[in-house]
Design a protein around this nucleic acid. Structure first.
Length: 302
RNA sequence: GGUACCAUAGCUCAGUUGGUAGAGCAAUGGACUGAAAAUCCAUGUGUCCCUGGUUCGAUUCCAGGUGGUACCA
Protein backbone atom coordinates (compact mmCIF):
# COMPACT_ATOMS: atom_id res chain seq x y z
CA UNK A 1 0.00 0.00 0.00
CA UNK A 2 1.52 3.33 -1.05
CA UNK A 3 1.81 6.15 1.44
CA UNK A 4 -0.23 9.20 0.55
CA UNK A 5 -0.35 12.71 1.87
CA UNK A 6 -3.79 14.11 1.19
CA UNK A 7 -3.63 17.88 1.01
CA UNK A 8 -6.88 19.75 1.62
CA UNK A 9 -6.48 23.40 0.65
CA UNK A 10 -8.55 26.41 -0.33
CA UNK A 11 -9.19 30.03 0.57
CA UNK A 12 -9.96 31.11 4.11
CA UNK A 13 -13.54 30.50 5.14
CA UNK A 14 -14.36 28.09 2.34
CA UNK A 15 -15.13 25.21 4.73
CA UNK A 16 -11.97 23.14 5.00
CA UNK A 17 -12.19 22.33 8.70
CA UNK A 18 -15.60 20.66 8.75
CA UNK A 19 -14.81 18.50 5.77
CA UNK A 20 -11.35 17.63 7.05
CA UNK A 21 -12.76 15.91 10.12
CA UNK A 22 -14.90 13.62 8.01
CA UNK A 23 -12.12 12.84 5.54
CA UNK A 24 -9.75 12.00 8.39
CA UNK A 25 -12.33 9.76 9.99
CA UNK A 26 -13.07 8.07 6.69
CA UNK A 27 -9.42 7.10 6.33
CA UNK A 28 -9.01 6.51 10.06
CA UNK A 29 -6.10 8.89 10.16
CA UNK A 30 -4.88 12.13 11.69
CA UNK A 31 -4.61 15.74 10.55
CA UNK A 32 -1.52 17.87 10.22
CA UNK A 33 -2.05 21.57 9.72
CA UNK A 34 -0.48 23.83 7.12
CA UNK A 35 -1.86 27.01 8.61
CA UNK A 36 0.66 29.70 9.47
CA UNK A 37 -1.45 31.20 12.26
CA UNK A 38 -3.28 28.30 13.83
CA UNK A 39 0.09 26.97 15.03
CA UNK A 40 0.18 29.74 17.62
CA UNK A 41 -1.48 28.75 20.86
CA UNK A 42 -2.16 32.31 21.98
CA UNK A 43 -4.66 32.89 19.17
CA UNK A 44 -7.90 30.99 18.92
CA UNK A 45 -10.93 33.01 17.85
CA UNK A 46 -9.40 35.15 15.12
CA UNK A 47 -7.54 32.28 13.50
CA UNK A 48 -10.61 30.04 13.44
CA UNK A 49 -8.92 27.00 14.88
CA UNK A 50 -11.05 23.84 14.90
CA UNK A 51 -13.60 23.56 17.71
CA UNK A 52 -12.59 21.58 20.85
CA UNK A 53 -15.07 18.93 19.79
CA UNK A 54 -13.42 18.61 16.40
CA UNK A 55 -9.98 18.47 17.99
CA UNK A 56 -11.14 15.62 20.21
CA UNK A 57 -12.60 13.69 17.29
CA UNK A 58 -9.40 13.62 15.27
CA UNK A 59 -5.81 14.01 16.41
CA UNK A 60 -4.38 17.30 15.08
CA UNK A 61 -0.75 18.27 14.69
CA UNK A 62 0.58 21.83 14.45
CA UNK A 63 -2.54 23.36 15.90
CA UNK A 64 -1.57 25.45 18.96
CA UNK A 65 1.77 23.68 18.96
CA UNK A 66 3.95 26.80 19.08
CA UNK A 67 4.01 30.19 20.74
CA UNK A 68 3.75 33.59 19.10
CA UNK A 69 7.18 34.22 20.63
CA UNK A 70 8.72 31.31 18.72
CA UNK A 71 10.32 31.67 15.32
CA UNK A 72 8.27 29.64 12.91
CA UNK A 73 8.45 29.82 9.14
CA UNK A 74 7.72 27.69 6.11
CA UNK A 75 11.08 26.05 6.65
CA UNK A 76 10.13 24.90 10.15
CA UNK A 77 6.82 23.77 8.71
CA UNK A 78 8.58 21.67 6.09
CA UNK A 79 11.12 20.20 8.47
CA UNK A 80 8.73 19.42 11.31
CA UNK A 81 5.97 18.13 9.07
CA UNK A 82 8.31 15.78 7.21
CA UNK A 83 9.63 14.41 10.49
CA UNK A 84 6.11 13.87 11.71
CA UNK A 85 5.03 12.19 8.48
CA UNK A 86 7.91 9.77 8.67
CA UNK A 87 6.56 8.56 12.00
CA UNK A 88 2.92 8.61 11.00
CA UNK A 89 3.47 6.64 7.80
CA UNK A 90 4.77 3.70 9.82
CA UNK A 91 1.21 3.09 10.97
CA UNK A 92 -0.91 5.04 8.52
CA UNK A 93 -1.20 4.76 4.78
CA UNK A 94 -2.83 8.16 4.51
CA UNK A 95 -2.30 11.39 6.38
CA UNK A 96 -4.40 14.49 5.84
CA UNK A 97 -2.79 17.92 5.71
CA UNK A 98 -5.22 20.82 6.00
CA UNK A 99 -4.54 24.53 5.68
CA UNK A 100 -4.47 27.48 3.36
CA UNK A 101 -1.00 28.93 3.87
CA UNK A 102 0.31 28.78 0.35
CA UNK A 103 4.00 28.77 1.01
CA UNK A 104 3.71 26.29 3.87
CA UNK A 105 1.90 23.84 1.64
CA UNK A 106 4.48 24.37 -1.06
CA UNK A 107 7.31 23.83 1.41
CA UNK A 108 5.93 20.47 2.49
CA UNK A 109 5.07 19.30 -1.02
CA UNK A 110 8.04 20.62 -2.98
CA UNK A 111 10.55 21.77 -0.42
CA UNK A 112 12.28 25.12 -0.27
CA UNK A 113 15.87 26.03 -0.92
CA UNK A 114 18.50 25.71 1.74
CA UNK A 115 19.39 29.14 2.99
CA UNK A 116 20.64 30.19 6.41
CA UNK A 117 18.29 31.31 9.14
CA UNK A 118 18.65 35.04 9.56
CA UNK A 119 20.14 36.31 12.77
CA UNK A 120 17.52 38.56 14.42
CA UNK A 121 20.15 41.19 15.16
CA UNK A 122 21.14 41.38 11.50
CA UNK A 123 17.50 41.70 10.50
CA UNK A 124 17.03 44.49 12.98
CA UNK A 125 20.08 46.40 11.81
CA UNK A 126 19.09 46.15 8.15
CA UNK A 127 15.59 47.27 8.94
CA UNK A 128 16.94 50.30 10.74
CA UNK A 129 19.14 51.11 7.79
CA UNK A 130 16.14 50.84 5.51
CA UNK A 131 14.09 53.14 7.71
CA UNK A 132 16.86 55.71 7.96
CA UNK A 133 18.31 55.65 4.47
CA UNK A 134 15.40 54.41 2.39
CA UNK A 135 14.94 51.61 -0.08
CA UNK A 136 17.47 52.86 -2.59
CA UNK A 137 20.32 52.28 -0.16
CA UNK A 138 19.24 48.65 0.35
CA UNK A 139 18.86 48.18 -3.39
CA UNK A 140 22.41 49.37 -3.99
CA UNK A 141 23.68 46.99 -1.36
CA UNK A 142 21.89 44.12 -3.10
CA UNK A 143 23.26 45.18 -6.46
CA UNK A 144 26.76 44.80 -5.08
CA UNK A 145 26.14 41.56 -3.20
CA UNK A 146 24.01 39.81 -5.81
CA UNK A 147 23.63 41.50 -9.20
CA UNK A 148 21.84 38.45 -10.59
CA UNK A 149 19.03 38.59 -8.08
CA UNK A 150 18.97 42.36 -8.29
CA UNK A 151 17.83 41.99 -11.87
CA UNK A 152 15.12 39.48 -10.99
CA UNK A 153 13.66 40.88 -7.82
CA UNK A 154 10.69 43.20 -7.57
CA UNK A 155 12.66 46.27 -6.54
CA UNK A 156 9.55 47.97 -5.23
CA UNK A 157 8.98 45.21 -2.72
CA UNK A 158 11.18 46.29 0.16
CA UNK A 159 10.63 43.08 2.07
CA UNK A 160 12.02 41.00 -0.77
CA UNK A 161 15.00 43.26 -1.32
CA UNK A 162 15.77 43.30 2.39
CA UNK A 163 15.51 39.56 2.64
CA UNK A 164 17.85 39.00 -0.25
CA UNK A 165 20.47 41.24 1.36
CA UNK A 166 20.03 39.44 4.68
CA UNK A 167 20.61 36.10 3.05
CA UNK A 168 23.70 37.29 1.18
CA UNK A 169 25.24 38.66 4.36
CA UNK A 170 24.28 35.62 6.38
CA UNK A 171 25.47 33.05 3.82
CA UNK A 172 28.51 34.94 2.64
CA UNK A 173 27.47 34.32 -0.95
CA UNK A 174 24.83 35.56 -3.37
CA UNK A 175 21.23 34.66 -2.61
CA UNK A 176 20.74 33.69 -6.24
CA UNK A 177 23.40 30.98 -5.92
CA UNK A 178 21.28 29.33 -3.23
CA UNK A 179 18.06 29.41 -5.19
CA UNK A 180 17.76 26.04 -6.88
CA UNK A 181 14.20 26.36 -8.08
CA UNK A 182 13.72 22.60 -8.21
CA UNK A 183 11.13 20.50 -6.43
CA UNK A 184 12.48 18.04 -3.92
CA UNK A 185 11.49 14.39 -4.20
CA UNK A 186 9.19 13.02 -1.52
CA UNK A 187 8.97 9.33 -0.63
CA UNK A 188 5.17 9.49 -0.45
CA UNK A 189 2.43 10.37 -2.91
CA UNK A 190 0.62 13.67 -2.74
CA UNK A 191 -3.00 14.23 -3.70
CA UNK A 192 -4.28 17.77 -3.57
CA UNK A 193 -7.94 18.59 -3.04
CA UNK A 194 -8.84 22.25 -3.54
CA UNK A 195 -12.08 23.65 -2.17
CA UNK A 196 -13.75 26.66 -3.72
CA UNK A 197 -17.12 28.36 -3.93
CA UNK A 198 -18.76 31.18 -5.88
CA UNK A 199 -16.92 34.33 -4.99
CA UNK A 200 -20.03 36.00 -3.59
CA UNK A 201 -20.86 32.97 -1.50
CA UNK A 202 -17.30 32.82 -0.18
CA UNK A 203 -17.30 36.51 0.73
CA UNK A 204 -20.65 36.22 2.50
CA UNK A 205 -19.25 33.38 4.58
CA UNK A 206 -16.14 35.38 5.41
CA UNK A 207 -18.14 38.44 6.46
CA UNK A 208 -20.47 36.33 8.55
CA UNK A 209 -17.61 34.50 10.20
CA UNK A 210 -15.99 37.76 11.26
CA UNK A 211 -19.23 38.85 12.93
CA UNK A 212 -19.34 35.50 14.73
CA UNK A 213 -15.75 35.90 15.87
CA UNK A 214 -16.60 39.27 17.36
CA UNK A 215 -19.58 37.72 19.16
CA UNK A 216 -17.32 35.00 20.52
CA UNK A 217 -14.96 37.57 22.00
CA UNK A 218 -12.37 38.38 19.35
CA UNK A 219 -11.99 41.93 20.66
CA UNK A 220 -11.13 40.69 24.15
CA UNK A 221 -8.73 38.09 22.77
CA UNK A 222 -6.94 40.75 20.75
CA UNK A 223 -6.80 43.10 23.71
CA UNK A 224 -5.01 40.44 25.68
CA UNK A 225 -2.37 40.23 22.94
CA UNK A 226 -2.03 43.97 22.40
CA UNK A 227 1.31 44.13 24.21
CA UNK A 228 2.77 41.66 21.70
CA UNK A 229 1.59 43.58 18.64
CA UNK A 230 5.12 44.08 17.35
CA UNK A 231 5.75 40.36 16.96
CA UNK A 232 5.69 39.12 13.40
CA UNK A 233 3.23 36.41 14.39
CA UNK A 234 0.82 39.14 15.42
CA UNK A 235 0.85 40.69 11.98
CA UNK A 236 -2.35 38.79 11.43
CA UNK A 237 -5.73 39.67 9.97
CA UNK A 238 -8.24 39.95 12.77
CA UNK A 239 -5.72 41.26 15.25
CA UNK A 240 -3.72 43.98 13.54
CA UNK A 241 -6.91 45.90 12.74
CA UNK A 242 -8.07 45.73 16.34
CA UNK A 243 -4.65 46.92 17.52
CA UNK A 244 -5.22 50.03 15.41
CA UNK A 245 -8.51 50.48 17.19
CA UNK A 246 -6.90 50.08 20.62
CA UNK A 247 -4.38 52.72 19.64
CA UNK A 248 -7.26 55.06 18.96
CA UNK A 249 -6.63 55.32 15.25
CA UNK A 250 -9.91 53.81 14.05
CA UNK A 251 -13.33 52.99 15.47
CA UNK A 252 -14.33 49.47 16.40
CA UNK A 253 -16.81 49.40 13.52
CA UNK A 254 -14.08 50.41 11.11
CA UNK A 255 -11.74 47.75 12.49
CA UNK A 256 -14.35 45.04 11.99
CA UNK A 257 -15.01 46.28 8.47
CA UNK A 258 -11.29 46.13 7.73
CA UNK A 259 -11.01 42.61 9.14
CA UNK A 260 -13.69 41.54 6.68
CA UNK A 261 -12.05 43.31 3.77
CA UNK A 262 -8.58 42.02 4.54
CA UNK A 263 -9.90 38.49 4.92
CA UNK A 264 -11.56 38.78 1.52
CA UNK A 265 -8.36 40.06 -0.02
CA UNK A 266 -6.40 37.26 1.59
CA UNK A 267 -8.80 34.73 0.11
CA UNK A 268 -8.31 36.31 -3.30
CA UNK A 269 -4.54 36.09 -3.00
CA UNK A 270 -4.76 32.46 -1.96
CA UNK A 271 -6.86 31.67 -5.03
CA UNK A 272 -4.43 33.55 -7.22
CA UNK A 273 -1.58 31.39 -5.89
CA UNK A 274 -3.48 28.10 -6.06
CA UNK A 275 -4.63 28.73 -9.63
CA UNK A 276 -1.06 28.31 -10.79
CA UNK A 277 -0.91 24.75 -9.47
CA UNK A 278 -2.47 22.45 -12.04
CA UNK A 279 -2.07 19.47 -9.72
CA UNK A 280 -5.04 20.55 -7.62
CA UNK A 281 -8.34 18.67 -7.93
CA UNK A 282 -11.02 21.30 -7.39
CA UNK A 283 -14.37 20.71 -5.71
CA UNK A 284 -17.19 22.53 -4.02
CA UNK A 285 -17.08 21.69 -0.27
CA UNK A 286 -20.43 19.92 -0.58
CA UNK A 287 -19.09 17.43 -3.13
CA UNK A 288 -18.02 15.18 -0.31
CA UNK A 289 -18.88 11.93 -2.07
CA UNK A 290 -16.95 12.86 -5.18
CA UNK A 291 -13.97 13.90 -3.09
CA UNK A 292 -13.93 10.66 -1.12
CA UNK A 293 -14.30 8.68 -4.31
CA UNK A 294 -11.34 10.40 -5.94
CA UNK A 295 -9.25 9.98 -2.81
CA UNK A 296 -10.08 6.31 -2.52
CA UNK A 297 -8.97 5.77 -6.11
CA UNK A 298 -5.78 7.77 -5.72
CA UNK A 299 -4.85 6.22 -2.38
CA UNK A 300 -5.19 2.67 -3.59
CA UNK A 301 -2.35 3.30 -5.99
CA UNK A 302 -4.15 3.72 -9.29
C1' G B 1 -53.29 64.93 -3.89
C1' G B 2 -49.90 69.76 -4.16
C1' U B 3 -44.97 71.99 -4.15
C1' A B 4 -39.70 71.63 -4.10
C1' C B 5 -35.38 68.89 -4.79
C1' C B 6 -32.95 64.52 -6.58
C1' A B 7 -32.03 60.25 -10.26
C1' U B 8 -24.40 59.33 -13.25
C1' A B 9 -19.74 52.89 -11.68
C1' G B 10 -21.35 47.71 -6.77
C1' C B 11 -21.79 52.12 -2.83
C1' U B 12 -21.29 57.56 -1.67
C1' C B 13 -20.99 61.38 -4.90
C1' A B 14 -18.42 65.05 -8.50
C1' G B 15 -18.81 66.76 -13.53
C1' U B 16 -19.79 68.03 -18.61
C1' U B 17 -21.26 76.90 -20.09
C1' G B 18 -24.41 70.71 -25.27
C1' G B 19 -19.09 67.19 -28.38
C1' U B 20 -21.15 59.96 -24.65
C1' A B 21 -17.75 60.98 -18.05
C1' G B 22 -14.22 60.68 -12.95
C1' A B 23 -12.98 60.65 -7.53
C1' G B 24 -13.06 57.97 -2.82
C1' C B 25 -14.42 53.35 -0.98
C1' A B 26 -15.64 48.50 -2.55
C1' A B 27 -14.03 45.18 -6.46
C1' U B 28 -10.94 42.54 -10.25
C1' G B 29 -6.27 40.37 -12.29
C1' G B 30 -1.22 39.21 -11.26
C1' A B 31 3.59 38.30 -8.64
C1' C B 32 5.46 35.34 -4.76
C1' U B 33 11.19 29.97 -2.57
C1' G B 34 13.17 30.48 5.25
C1' A B 35 8.51 37.27 8.00
C1' A B 36 3.58 34.56 3.54
C1' A B 37 -3.19 35.80 7.30
C1' A B 38 3.30 38.87 5.19
C1' U B 39 4.82 41.98 1.10
C1' C B 40 4.42 44.09 -3.77
C1' C B 41 2.45 45.42 -8.86
C1' A B 42 -1.46 46.51 -12.32
C1' U B 43 -6.72 47.58 -13.67
C1' G B 44 -12.50 51.85 -14.35
C1' U B 45 -16.02 47.78 -14.64
C1' G B 46 -21.23 52.91 -16.98
C1' U B 47 -28.40 52.21 -21.56
C1' C B 48 -25.24 59.14 -17.24
C1' C B 49 -33.74 56.48 -14.90
C1' C B 50 -37.42 56.08 -19.35
C1' U B 51 -39.98 58.38 -23.65
C1' G B 52 -40.35 62.36 -26.77
C1' G B 53 -38.78 67.55 -28.30
C1' U B 54 -35.01 71.34 -29.69
C1' U B 55 -30.08 70.61 -32.02
C1' C B 56 -25.26 68.75 -36.84
C1' G B 57 -24.91 66.48 -31.95
C1' A B 58 -28.48 65.63 -25.54
C1' U B 59 -26.00 62.38 -19.97
C1' U B 60 -26.27 67.94 -19.94
C1' C B 61 -31.52 72.24 -22.24
C1' C B 62 -37.25 71.64 -22.56
C1' A B 63 -41.86 68.57 -21.81
C1' G B 64 -44.11 64.28 -20.05
C1' G B 65 -43.54 59.69 -17.38
C1' U B 66 -41.48 56.58 -13.49
C1' G B 67 -38.95 56.11 -8.83
C1' G B 68 -37.02 58.44 -4.31
C1' U B 69 -36.62 62.31 -0.43
C1' A B 70 -38.53 66.58 2.17
C1' C B 71 -42.32 69.88 3.24
C1' C B 72 -47.60 71.15 2.72
C1' A B 73 -52.37 69.03 2.80
Amino acid sequence: MPKTLIVLLGPTGVGKTDLSIRIAQHFDTVITSSDSRQVYKEMRIGTAVPEPEQLSQVKHHFIHSHSIHDYFSSFECEKETLALLQNLFVEKNQVLMVGGSMMYIDAVCNGIDDIPTIDPQLRKELLEKYEQEGIESIRMQLKLLDPVFYNEVDLKNAKRVLHAVEVCLMAGKPYSSLRKNTAKKRDFNIVKIGLNRDREELYNRINLRVDQMVEEGLVEEARGLFEYRHLNSMNTVGYKELFEHFEGKISLEKAIELIKRNSRRYAKRQLSWFRRDDGINWFHPEQEEEILQLLTEKCSGN
